[in-house]
Amino acid sequence: MRKRSLLPIVYIFFLMLPIYWLVTMSFKTTNEILGGFSLFPQDFTLENYAKIFTDSTWYSGYINSIIYVVANTLLSVSVALPAAYAFSRYRFLGDKHLFFWLLTNRMAPAAVFALPFLQLYSAVGLFDTHIAVALAHTLFNVPLAVWILEGFMSGVPKELDETAYVDGYSFPRFFVKIFIPTIAAGIGVACFFCFMFSWVEMLLAKTLTSVDAKPIVATMTRTASTSGYELGLLAAAGTLTIIPGAFVIYFVRNYIAKGFALGRV
């Protein structure tokens, strides 16, 4: 048992090295970063973070991002749950093709959709709203959620459903009290991935917003373009970007690690 845990430890160490690097970059000035090699900030500075916390566009950027990402995650997963159940339990006209078609929406780079989305969402009056970004992201998140949830649902034997009906459960009660706990790991993963893919998506988020709903990712690329590379600032912003996501995975960790004991029915 001890030997087995060596691999995750090594892997995590490998993961943490660049992150350590990122965090130390955030406490350095751009000059120091590009000037030479230092394992630990020689000129430890908080100016990058100060710039972020005092500039209102930065933290409103965070809020905006969190709003549409959470909206998108909730929307995507709740819409995907019944659909995944249908794909998992029933056969219907066009089901296989529909299932694959969903995935095809992830097969084009976002760049392809940028201009058409701009036209589309402006036409329906949703430009520069959180809703627009949340809706736009459903393009790739809903198929992902459906695929993941269907995968996990198919691992639950249909006999569980039938036994519950025989025991007198109505469908909603069965779904909430029995079915969802057994696919908890799948829901946890689906939620996290939807959050993650929406959180890091930049192009559409930038394209569909300007001021009101400007997300953090847009604000961050500003630093890249205006004065060459404000690396320290970028690093600080990047570090801060990790934090909400870390919360999300911490929040769903129990779902992911829950495991599956086919309960007494």
Partner: peptide, 28 residues
């Protein structure tokens, strides 16, 4: 484990590129 492993996924992709750009530079 879960939280630490998830961290790389959460970094915006331009930051990923930028940090590796510096991380891998031969001198610095």
């Amino acid at each position: 484990c879960l939280v630490l492993m998830a961290l790389p996924l959460l970094i915006p992709w331009n930051v990923v590129g930028a940090m590796w750009n510096i991380f891998a530079l031969p001198e610095i």
